[in-house]
């Protein structure tokens, strides 16, 4: 390429570059395809595996969590950020947690507590706007459940009484059946005996 070839070739390449930017420009203007997310006005859709502070799951059937205060999570936590206590509750058989405090400042989001939970009642929450003015990040995980606790205990009692009643009925039925069987066997035996006598 000579001098003029260089000049005009170069000019052509400039034009092709400008066509690229014009295409992007028109895409943004006409098809409104700006990639910006207007953050406080529109919120991001978090990934399914997004990890934030742990929380207790609210189950639909009981409208509450299912923590039995076994302390497995407290024992396995490598950062010692879980503190919980609890135990027997008046009126029901099931154990319940009374205090469940978690220090998010210490949490490393390893997820061991989720794995170890026997009732699978822990999960990662999806909160992310967590800026604060101090270093106190202790979260009361039971805060949203306290109002429902009485309701839960009442429901649980009904369930347990029902279960107990069913069990009793079943046991009685089984006993009856057993007695009937015994009787039948005895009868049969008596029959056989009389037959033998006859013969």
């Amino acid at each position: 390429m000579g001098y003029f070839g260089n000049v005009f070739g170069g000019f052509g390449s400039l034009l092709s570059g400008m066509s690229v930017t014009l295409r992007k420009f028109s895409q943004t203007v006409i098809r409104r395809k700006a990639v910006t997310m207007q953050y406080p006005k529109e919120l991001p859709e978090l990934a399914p595996a997004y990890r934030s502070a742990i929380k207790l799951i609210r189950f639909e059937e009981s409208n509450s969590h299912d923590c039995v205060a076994c302390k497995a999570c407290e024992r396995i936590c490598p950062s010692y950020c879980i503190k919980l206590s609890g135990g027997k509750v008046e009126g029901i058989k099931k154990k319940r947690v009374a205090e469940f405090e978690m220090d998010f400042a210490l949490c490393s989001l390893c997820g061991l507590c989720l794995d170890v939970c026997p009732t699978d009642t822990l999960e990662y929450s999806k909160v992310y706007e967590e800026a604060g003015y101090n270093r106190d990040w202790r979260v009361d995980l039971l805060a949203e459940f306290r109002d429902y606790e009485e309701e839960f205990v009442a429901k649980q009692r009904v369930i347990e009484e029902k279960a107990a009643a069913e069990k009793k009925a079943k046991a009685e039925a089984a006993k009856k059946a057993k007695e009937a069987k015994k009787k039948a066997e005895a009868d049969e035996k008596a029959d056989n005996d009389s037959k033998e006598e006859l013969s």
Partner: peptide
């Protein structure tokens, strides 16, 4: 605005 649109942003809004 032009620079934002060329870079598929929104510019001052």
């Amino acid at each position: 605005k032009v620079s934002a649109w060329i870079q598929m942003r929104m510019g001052p809004t």
